[in-house]
Amino acid sequence: MKIELKNVSHTYDVEVLHQLNLVLEKYNAVALLGVSGSGKSTLIRLMAGLEKPTSGEIFVNDYDVIHDEDYKKHVGFVFQSHNLFPHLTLKRNISLILEKTRGFSLEQANQIAEDNLKLLKLDDQMDKIPKNVSGGQAQRASIARALSLNPDIIFLDEPTASLDPILTDEVLKAIEELRELGKDFVLVTHVISFVKDFANYVVFMENGHIIEQGTPKILDAPKTNELKAFMKKVR
């Protein structure tokens, strides 16, 4: 996957990202790390095209993220809390999108939904609405939803933030298994052990700046004081 950030800044009430620059190639699993409020969730949203930056340019796999409306069709996004539509069954959460926005027939849409839910081991849950399944199952369904749209890149924004340790394991295992599908991943997470296993590039952020970046080895031998302090905190 190719990611390029050029002078990306973003402001809500105050500026949360300051002139970020980043060029990445050939890595297929990138992790964004940092404490809450470091700007990593904002950055992943900008990279996925969910929000437009206040200034700067973003390119992902040669798509102009900000201006190319077609880009969103190639992106899968897994939100912090599953963010499934609460009134639809797990299956319909997926098939509705395929049917209404991707031009599949209802039968095809349902088939694809079922296949992906089965891939995430949700065979028995697919006809339930989100509130009637566990948080881990809902989050896995949300991953199945992202996969169903056959994206090139899957963005995961703290997919386990709202889960207890057991459910966290369950979801992380599911993500681990997705590696075999040959997709690209960008993820935000607090689970360092998972980053070490899963990611092949790490970007560490603090206060809206990129402080340190490199292969996961930097986590074992941090150069900057900020990353040193962060690693102490998460352990």
């Binding site: 949203r45 996925a48 095209g49 969910l50 929000e51 969103k72 069709k73 992106v75 996004f77 939100f79 809390s81 963010n83 539509f85 999108i97 209404k100 926005t101 749209l149």
Partner: peptide, 14 residues
Amino acid sequence: ISEEQYMAMDLFGF
């Protein structure tokens, strides 16, 4: 209906 739901609707292209 959360802001994130609107974000998702936008992303999926409804």
